[in-house]
Simulated scan of single mutants.
Amino acid sequence: MAAKLHPHDKRKVARSLQVFEETGISHSEFLCRQRAEEGGGPLGGPLRFPNSCILWLHADQTVLDKRLDKRVDDMLAAGLLDELRGFHRRYNQEKVAENSQDYQHGIFQSIGFKEFHEYLITEGKCTPETSNQLLKKGIEALKQVTKRYARKQNRWVKNRFLSRPGPSVPPVYGLEVSDVSKWEESVLEPALEIVRSFIQGRKPAAAPVRMPHDETENKRSYHMCDLCDRIIIGDREWAAHIKSKSHLHQLKKRRRLDSDAVTTVESQSISPDCDKELKEKGSPGQNGEELRPSV
Results as ranks from 00 to 15, higher is better:
residue 235 D to E: 06
residue 282 G to I: 00
residue 20 F to T: 13
residue 7 P to D: 05
residue 20 F to M: 14
residue 97 A to Y: 07
residue 82 D to Y: 03
residue 52 S to K: 07
residue 102 D to M: 04
residue 170 P to C: 05
residue 293 P to K: 13
residue 244 S to G: 02
residue 149 Y to F: 14
residue 72 V to R: 00
residue 229 D to N: 11
residue 129 E to W: 08
residue 264 T to H: 12
residue 78 A to M: 05
residue 272 P to Q: 08
residue 98 E to S: 14
residue 17 L to T: 08
residue 23 T to F: 01
residue 292 R to E: 13
residue 79 G to L: 03
residue 10 K to W: 10
residue 162 L to I: 09
residue 42 P to A: 11
residue 130 T to S: 14
residue 112 G to D: 00
residue 282 G to M: 03
residue 290 E to I: 13
residue 294 S to R: 12
residue 237 E to N: 14
residue 153 Q to G: 08
residue 225 C to M: 00
residue 48 R to Y: 10
residue 226 D to H: 13
residue 281 K to V: 11
residue 155 R to N: 12
residue 75 M to W: 08
residue 72 V to D: 02
residue 227 L to P: 04
residue 256 R to E: 15
residue 247 H to S: 01
residue 276 K to T: 13
residue 8 H to G: 11
residue 63 V to N: 06
residue 137 K to N: 12
residue 46 P to Q: 03
residue 40 G to D: 04
residue 216 T to Q: 15
residue 52 S to R: 07
residue 58 H to T: 14
residue 34 Q to G: 10
residue 212 P to C: 03
residue 275 D to H: 13
residue 174 G to H: 03
residue 11 R to P: 05
residue 265 V to T: 13
residue 223 H to I: 05
residue 291 L to K: 11
residue 255 R to K: 14
residue 128 P to Q: 06
residue 49 F to P: 02
residue 133 Q to V: 09
residue 159 N to R: 06
residue 50 P to C: 06
residue 86 G to I: 07
residue 74 D to N: 07
residue 240 A to I: 06
residue 210 R to T: 15
residue 9 D to H: 10
residue 267 S to A: 15
residue 66 K to V: 05
residue 129 E to K: 11
